[in-house]
Amino acid sequence: MFDFSVIVQNAPLLWYGLLVTLEYTVATITAGVIIGLIVGLIQLSRIRLLRALGRLYVEFFRNIPLLVTLLWTYYALPIFLHVNITKGWAGLIALSCYVGSFYAEILRAGVQGVDRGQTDAATALGMTYRQRMRRIVLPQAFRRMMPPLVGQSIIQMKNTTLLSAITVPDLLYQGSYVSSFTYKPMEIYTAIGAIFLVILVPLTMVTRRMEFGHVSPH
């Protein structure tokens, strides 16, 4: 029923797509972590205006469908700014800003989830805000944050398939292309799904083990 020779014959095209997918995954996660760190700290600021701006950013990108953000960045943003934005940059910007909003939220929740008594104890000992954050709150917050961070990053890898909508040659786009001249969509889309499974299932299992390893009762 399946004729996988079509995969073998077009392996270079699909391999190229996989590399593009992995590149975008790594690049947007890296940029997203930086954005998330900045926006997350802004959300934890003691200045109300900054907190509001951070909130605005997070709610903006979390509540617009990623596909809309992506298309808007590619087709509308260049018109607004009167500049040329290549599809590569548009994809990078949209995906990074999107995942950054989720990372920011994970950081905020992680820090605010640390028991209030921890801050009390550190304060009572005479620690400054920075010392409390660095020595007491953040180390505990990072432990809590690891599982959702990895989870969001896995979602991010899957979200890179949306890049094919703006013709970035990622794995899905290359697959569609191969399918368009071989007329073997069954084999090709099955293979693409399988590639994601093979990469992400082991990662998910590692995350699950981390979740158990990091339970830290008082």
Partner: peptide
Amino acid sequence: RAKTGMVFQQFNLFPH
């Protein structure tokens, strides 16, 4: 503050 030492109902030890 450092001239006072406080002991809490919930201990509030640093778990890490």
